[in-house]
Structure formats: structure tokens, C-alpha cells
Amino acid sequence: MSLFELFILAVGLSMDAFAVAVCKGLSLKKITVKHPVTVGLYFGIFQAGMPLIGFILGSQFSSRISSIDHWIAFILLGAIGINMIREALRKQEEECSKVEQDTALSFNNMIVLALATSIDALAIGITFAFLKVSIIPAVSFIGVVTFIISAAGVFIGNFFGAKYKSKAEFSGGVILVCLGFKILIEHLEIFS
């Protein structure tokens, strides 16, 4: 997987975290440096940790299913992407109102939000095992990209409101679906 592909994947994965960070920013009256850094750290750490867990799990059985690994990657990325697109097309007010109920960046609240936004990354880690991706640089890169995008989301949410939240999630879903198709086409050698 090239650095560009990894960047696109990291951006796609971070869109859920971005959407929640926008809601966090929306709920904060005044932002200090602590707010975006805290949100970015929670989301970045979880977005890096979940693919690592998925990679470890996927490595256990990747050799047994190497003949269909490209189909599994395609299905996982496609399912995650389609789910993100579907979520983006739903009414977004509900999600922001749930996040706004607890405006503090409490440990319990942030752990739940970080876990909820990083579940998709677990499946990506399984895909990484099938594609034999160098996992430590990959998850580090995903964590840093998610940190930056989430921190920016807090500022954007506070400044612009929820205007861009669903567009970001929709874009992230499209990116993941396209990446799934690319992996499938490469492994099937359709354009070789």
C-alpha cells in the first residue's frame, strides 16, 4: 500500500471522528488549546489502536484465506464505506444533540465516542493483515492524520457549526468504497 493510498484511507477512516469532533466544537462556548488536543488524542489513539488489534487478529488466519483476501478487503471496505454514506444521508441533528448533552471532555464520554468512531478501523486492520501492510508505520500514520482532522473538527464545529459534518462523513464513505474497488481490481489484474 502506497503512502498516498494510506493517506486516503486514513482520511476516510477519520471522517466519523471528524463528524463527532464538529459536534464537540459546536457544544463548546469558548475553545482553548486543550479542547482540540484532547479530542484529537482520544480519536487518534483509538483510530491507531483498533487497526493494530485487527491486524493481530487477521494475521492469525490470513495465510489460510490468501486466495480470497482481496474479496474480503473489498467487502469490508465497501460495507464500511456504504454504512458511512448511509449515515451521512440520515438526519444529523440527532447525533449532535446526543454529543451536546455532555459538553465536558470527560474520560467516560470521550472513551465511548472514540471507541464508537473507531470500530470500522478494526476491520481495516484485518484487511491490512491480508494485504501484508507494514503495520506500525501504517497505524501511526492513521493516528496522526486522525488527530489532526479531529482537532480541526473541534475548531470547525465551533466556528461554522454542523454545516460540513454530513458532507465529511459522506466523502469518507465514498473514499473507502473506491479504495475497496481499487484493491479488488489490482488483485484480479483487470487492467494489467
Rank of each mutant, 00 (worst) to 15 (best):
S134K: 11
L41Y: 07
F155S: 08
F191V: 12
V22W: 11
G12A: 11
L131T: 02
P36R: 04
I135R: 04
S150E: 14
D120T: 09
S106I: 09
S66R: 10
R64L: 13
S27W: 00
G153D: 12
A10S: 15
I183W: 04
G49P: 03
G12T: 02
G172W: 07
F61K: 00
E189Q: 15
C178L: 15
I75R: 03
A114T: 11
V177L: 12
I111G: 01
T127E: 06
I75T: 03
A19V: 13
Q92F: 12
I56L: 15
A152I: 12
F46V: 12
I136M: 12
I119Y: 11
L184D: 13
F141A: 05
T127Q: 04
I175A: 15
V37S: 01
C23Q: 06
A73W: 06
L113P: 03
E186P: 09
E95G: 05
M50H: 01
I56T: 13
E186T: 06
V37W: 05
S140I: 13
A121T: 09
K30E: 15
L57R: 04
I80Y: 08
L113F: 00
I175L: 14
M50G: 07
S27V: 10
T146K: 07
F181I: 13
S27M: 13
A114E: 04
E94T: 13
E100P: 04
G153T: 07
R64M: 03
I149Q: 02
V33R: 10
M1T: 10
L76Q: 04
L28Y: 02
S140D: 06
S67Q: 08
G172K: 02
L28H: 08
V139N: 10
A73Y: 04
S14K: 05
P51D: 02
G161W: 05
A104C: 05
K167N: 08
M84K: 09
I135N: 10
L115N: 01
F170E: 08
S62G: 06
V22M: 08
L3Y: 08
T103Y: 08
S14W: 02
V177N: 07
I124Y: 05
I126E: 05
S171Y: 07
G40R: 05
F4E: 15
K34S: 10
L6K: 01
S192H: 11
G49K: 02
F160Q: 09
F181P: 04
L52M: 10
D16I: 02
P51L: 03
I80S: 15
G173R: 07
I31A: 12
V99F: 02
L41A: 04
I111S: 03
A151Q: 10
